[in-house]
Amino acid sequence: MSDIKRFDHRVCEYPGGTFSEMNQEADGDYVLHSDHEAEVARLRAELQNAAKAALDATALACEKEREADALRVNAERYRWLRDQPWRDNEELEPVIRLQLNALWDDKIDAAMGEGK
């Protein structure tokens, strides 16, 4: 807890009666309502910040996972290209030979699908 003042309650007896008093104590069992409310607000803000940080980290992890998936697909595509006799494929060979780069992925994927 932050700068919350804590108090203890004591009942004191004296000849002729008793009286009750609250004394400020470092480890007291009581706090002022205003201090309690301020601490609850502080803790809620801290929790909200931690939750936002966790959500941001999760979103970043998901984005990195999507990037990894895309890279994995490209790696599979080009490993297949490296290891297959693509020159025998009538649709794929001219795309590669003529450097029609915009068509490579679609044509390679189609050729990969033929081998499955």
Rank of each mutant, 00 (worst) to 15 (best):
S2H: 11
D3L: 14
R6V: 02
R6N: 03
F7W: 07
H9T: 07
R10P: 01
R10K: 15
R10M: 11
V11D: 01
V11H: 05
E13W: 14
E13C: 11
E13F: 14
Y14D: 07
Y14Q: 11
G17A: 03
G17D: 00
G17H: 03
T18W: 07
T18F: 09
T18N: 06
F19V: 02
F19A: 02
S20Q: 10
S20V: 12
E21F: 03
M22H: 08
N23W: 10
Q24I: 07
E25C: 03
E25R: 04
E25S: 04
E25N: 02
E25L: 00
D27P: 01
G28H: 02
G28V: 04
Y30H: 13
L32S: 03
L32I: 05
L32Y: 01
H33L: 13
S34I: 07
S34E: 11
S34T: 10
S34H: 07
H36T: 03
E37N: 04
E37Q: 15
V40M: 08
A41S: 11
R42Q: 04
R42W: 06
R42C: 06
L43G: 04
R44T: 10
A45R: 15
A45F: 08
E46S: 12
E46G: 09
L47A: 12
Q48M: 12
N49T: 14
N49Y: 06
A50T: 12
A53L: 08
A54L: 14
D56A: 15
A57F: 08
T58A: 15
T58G: 07
T58I: 12
L60V: 09
L60P: 01
L60W: 05
C62Q: 15
C62I: 11
E65P: 00
E65V: 02
R66V: 05
E67A: 10
E67I: 06
A68Y: 04
A70I: 11
A70Q: 13
A70C: 02
A70Y: 09
R72Y: 11
R72V: 01
N74I: 06
A75K: 15
A75L: 14
E76I: 05
E76N: 09
R77P: 02
Y78S: 01
W80T: 03
W80R: 06
W80M: 04
Q84P: 02
Q84K: 10
W86M: 03
R87H: 10
R87V: 10
D88Q: 11
N89M: 02
E90L: 12
E93F: 12
P94V: 08
P94F: 08
P94N: 07
P94S: 07
P94Y: 01
R97C: 05
R97S: 06
L98S: 08
L98H: 12
Q99D: 06
Q99T: 10
Q99L: 11
N101L: 10
N101E: 05
L103M: 13
L103F: 04
L103A: 08
L103K: 15
W104C: 05
D106L: 11
K107C: 08
K107M: 10
A111L: 02
A111N: 00
M112E: 01
M112R: 14
M112K: 07
G113D: 07
K116S: 09
K116Y: 12
